[in-house]
Design a protein around this nucleic acid. Sequence first.
DNA 1: GTCTATAGAAGGATAGAC
DNA 2: GTCTATCCTTCTATAGAC
Lengths: 212, 212
Amino acid sequence: MKETDIQTEDKIFEAATRVFTEKGFDGARMHEIAGEAGINKALLHYYFRTKEKLFDAVFSKLAASLFEKFTPLFRPGMSLEEKIRFFYHEHISFLKQNPQLPSFILNELNRNPQRIKKIFEKADVDKIYNMLSQQHPKELAEINITRESMPQIMASIAAMSAFPFVAKGIIGEILQKQGKDFDSFIEERKEFAPEFILAALKNFGKSKKSKK
Amino acid sequence: MKETDIQTEDKIFEAATRVFTEKGFDGARMHEIAGEAGINKALLHYYFRTKEKLFDAVFSKLAASLFEKFTPLFRPGMSLEEKIRFFYHEHISFLKQNPQLPSFILNELNRNPQRIKKIFEKADVDKIYNMLSQQHPKELAEINITRESMPQIMASIAAMSAFPFVAKGIIGEILQKQGKDFDSFIEERKEFAPEFILAALKNFGKSKKSKK
DNA sequence: GTCTATAGAAGGATAGAC
DNA sequence: GTCTATCCTTCTATAGAC
């Protein structure tokens, strides 16, 4: 019966993923998850014991899948500019398939700061800066990216792709009045975001240098 | 007794504001709001009848206060560049005092799309574009802002100030490892955001034009 | 207007049969 | 492993005294 075990556990996990991402921890109901999975409430507890544990399993996996998408930025063999274009293309395509993901993750992370530490021994800006400056020493110097300015720049890069999804409600509504829709806005964004960031970085580097 | 009525109603409203912004609608508990207000659960219902109605009152006011901050962008007498600098300074200062506001508003807006329409008869990008192009015809042309590119640009401008607060959990954690803190990151951002956006707009306009 | 007490519903979790 | 039935707690909301 190992087969069915795994099948059921997976069904539960997928149902929980849907319900939790849509409603959040507080808004999700165990009986709704059971319904989505086509099984019974008691079985949820049989497999995952508590709501909290079920949530943790779902959250950890989703958080990992989200942040994993940043790794291409550190793969060698591409110029910085290529990496940025490639990153946005991949990242936004992924988010388009999972539009509630950024909201969900960022929110639960704000509510439960403890969760952060579990996942983020990795998220060390200094390491990221070291890797980038090894791979792109000239480019970073040219556009004036320093260890100091890294957090501001990284936050801005992430903002360009994640924010539209976090603000999907309003943006969708606004677009609708223009006779446009969210999906084509997002499609455009795959091009717009990297162009915008590259333009900013080029000019930003220049203005900083000329001041000195 | 009108005096005390208003005092109590205000106390409830303020307590509800704190609890709802911190925990969201689903996470908030009426008895916690009552406790925060220093009164009794029954009194909440006496003044606001239901949790839903109390939430609506709080939400409407907060959403209005948040989006109100965008109006300086349409006040005449400033160059576009000055407006952008001024906007970020004011907006980020405001958010620094109310760091959970963007998360709260955007989230509840995603969960309850009906709410949007109540508040946003105003949010019409075309109107905004018309106002801006009347006040800054040359400047807009120079940096190549068109009716078409408005949504992308507006989303990017909003992202630069709102996103750091939405992602406060992670960003704070990452900064901590560098021996920095979120507040000084935000303080820096008042300068960084406008410089970054202005740099992007300048260069973005150029690259688009030179392609044609 | 404000309180105590409580109704009534819903949620998470478990016991026990199959 | 899966189900039904049920316990226990918590939550929103109301009744009724003061």
